[in-house]
Nucleic acid binder design. Structure first.
Length: 564
RNA sequence: UGGGGUGUCGCCAAGCGGUAAGGCACGGGUCUUUGGAACCCGCAUUCGGAGGUUCGAAUCCUCCCACCCCAGCCA
């Protein structure tokens, strides 16, 4: 852990928590919760919330509950509660025994509803959904009171229990809070607390045919769990008066709801609807496609939990709508992987090189450093022979000004090996494409330095043709071409999809040492980037995903060259 | 036209009446057997705008402007 990681940045929520601890508002307790609805996969936006809630609990010696907000059986599935737990755990957080389900509170919620009915604060309403919308009024016009609003408590109690008993068809009646149809805040215009819905629930089965709605459920759940700080996103700010109203009327333990801005990232989309669309339309291979901003996608892409946690720390927490530059996320993985990923040589687009003065049947092993950032990671031996592969991009027949890699007549260093000089270029007769290079090597430069002290400008990675392993490498770019997809083009985010977001290279050659690389392992392919082994990989067919490229100064220069 | 929010560098973000932190990005340099990493330097006389209060304002007051959210029996 870096120092920065254990020194959290100040933000307004931490300030509130610290103040509360100081004043003893909650007797010094800190209890937060991460309350996902199990209706989809977690993404980097959820990670921000997870890090915030679990992070604050950890930091102030409190606890953070994992609570599934499972009050809508038509959308929720057990499969998701599984994947959510996996993702939270993978991110590095532990809820201990504190795993809860809103559905566990159904009986208590029902009792709370009965209490409100008895108080005259809730009533059964027979308006149809259409009528209800009509009666609600608009943003600028107040609503009208329902004709059922003044039913007696006895009648409401009777009706509500019969709703539960299944005497009425789906959607025929609801239980509503009796608040204020003229409120400027539409959430306070007698919001629905319960609906009749005959659907199989992933945990309660067919026990219930009425289900509570979010506003009623959430505050009561928080109260039952004695949450201190109920942290949610900005769109719930308008719901806070309702959160407070329910708890005040119920006269129960009352946590404080605090809202923060959700995360947006450039060059991607975050809404569940859009993510579903990408998967369904086949623009990606699934929820865990390495191009997806889902936790499972990022995991497959090679992002480490540490890098995601670090990212969530450096972006900060505030109430301003913002869109974080994807470059910051990239920076966070590089920072982490630079310290941890073993270096390895791998040639993505091979160009055959014959060392004409190297003995035909000779081979040798050269020592290579596993990670210059961490000597403790040791060294390894890499085989070398007369025929090697280098990267096609590392040779130019007619090199531009600032290109100082290999070119006819030019000498460069092969990393950990020898200096070589290009003495011949073999081309395909028809296409005129360069298919092979002839080079001489200098036996005096074994290991990569010359006794006469002469310098070479470039160091190339390479792989011995006879020893290298074939591999498939999947190169990823951002899923979208524009920083905020759909901003132009009439809001159609799919029009901004990057057609080159995935490029598959099939004839890559990697160091033989990679033979037993296991899915999930991360490496730095020297001079190219960070790559990890995909679950599709097998001993007979290695498959790597590019997590991120290395910062590439030459690419920048080249781009500038093209422009001028 | 109702209600709730937010406006500090290209992107995030500290700051809470005492004279604009930090990160990313960007530009320049040192070093280098990764054009990587590391390191150094530069990068808001100014805080949405206009007034006002004050010895002193990004921070307090007034007005204005811009943007975001809300009319599911979703969460």
């Amino acid at each position: 852990m870096t120092n920065a990681e254990i020194t959290p940045a100040p933000n307004f929520i931490r300030a509130i928590v610290e103040e509360d601890i100081k004043t003893g508002k909650w007797d010094g307790r800190v209890v937060t919760r991460f309350p996902p609805e199990p209706n989809g996969y977690l993404h980097i936006g959820h990670a921000k919330s997870i890090c915030l809630n679990f992070g604050i609990a950890l930091e102030y010696g409190g606890t953070c509950h994992l609570r599934f907000d499972d009050t809508n059986p038509t959308k929720e599935e057990a499969e998701y509660v599984q994947s959510i737990q996996e993702d939270v755990r993978w991110l590095g957080f532990d809820w201990g025994a504190n795993i809860f389900y809103a559905s566990d509170y159904f009986e208590q919620l029902y009792e709370c509803a009965v209490r409100l009915i008895k108080k005259g604060k809730a009533y059964v309403c027979d308006l149809s959904p259409d009528q209800m919308r009509e009666y609600r009024g608009t943003l600028t016009k107040p609503g009208k009171e329902s004709p059922y609003r003044n039913r007696s408590a006895e009648e409401n109690l009777d009706l509500f229990s019969r709703m539960r008993a299944g005497e009425f068809p789906d959607g025929s009646r609801v239980l509503r809070a009796r608040i204020d149809m003229a409120s400027g805040n539409i959430n306070m215009r007698d919001p629905v607390m319960y609906r009749i819905l005959r659907a199989h629930h992933h945990r309660t089965g067919d026990k219930w045919c009425i289900y509570p709605l979010y506003d009623f459920t959430h505050c009561v759940s928080d109260s039952l769990e004695r949450i201190t700080h109920s942290i949610c996103t900005l769109e719930f700010e308008d719901h806070r008066p309702l959160y407070d109203w329910f708890l005040d009327e119920l006269e129960v333990y009352h946590p404080q709801q605090i809202e923060f801005a959700r995360l947006n990232l450039t060059y991607t989309v975050m809404s569940k609807r859009k993510l579903v669309e990408l998967v369904d339309a086949g623009h990606v291979r699934g929820w865990d496609d390495p191009r997806m901003p889902t936790i499972s996608g990022m995991r497959r892409r090679g992002y480490s939990p540490e890098s995601i946690r670090r990212f969530c720390e450096v972006i900060g927490v505030a109430k301003r709508n913002s869109t974080v530059d994807a470059a910051l996320l990239e920076h966070c993985v590089r920072e982490d992987l630079n310290r941890k990923a073993p270096r390895v040589m791998s040639v993505l687009r091979p160009l055959r090189v014959v060392l004409v003065n190297y003995p035909e049947n000779r081979e040798e092993e050269l020592e290579a450093i596993n990670n210059p950032e961490d000597p403790a990671m040791g060294t390894r031996r890499v085989p070398f022979s007369r025929v090697i592969y280098i990267e096609r991009d590392d040779f130019r027949e007619d090199p531009p000004k600032q290109f100082y890699r290999l070119a006819p007549g030019r000498e460069v260093r092969l990393r950990y090996a020898y200096y070589i000089k290009c003495v011949g270029v073999v081309k395909d007769e028809k296409s005129n494409e360069v298919i092979e290079l002839h080079c001489t090597y200098d036996p005096e430069t074994r290991g990569g330095s010359s006794p006469d002290g002469r310098k070479v400008k470039a160091t190339l990675h390479w792989v011995s043709a006879a020893h290298a392993l074939q591999a498939e490498v999947r190169l990823y770019e951002s899923l979208f071409l524009t920083p905020t997809p759909g901003e132009q083009k009439g809001g159609d985010f799919k029009a901004d999809i990057n057609p080159n977001s995935l490029v598959v290279l099939n004839s890559c050659r990697v160091e033989p040492g990679l033979a037993d690389a296991a899915p999930g392992d991360s490496y730095q392919f020297e001079r190219q980037g960070y790559f990890c082994v995909d679950p599709d990989s097998s001993p007979t067919r290695l498959v790597f995903n590019r997590t991120a490229t290395l910062r590439d100064t030459w690419a920048k220069i080249e781009k500038g060259l093209q422009r001028s």
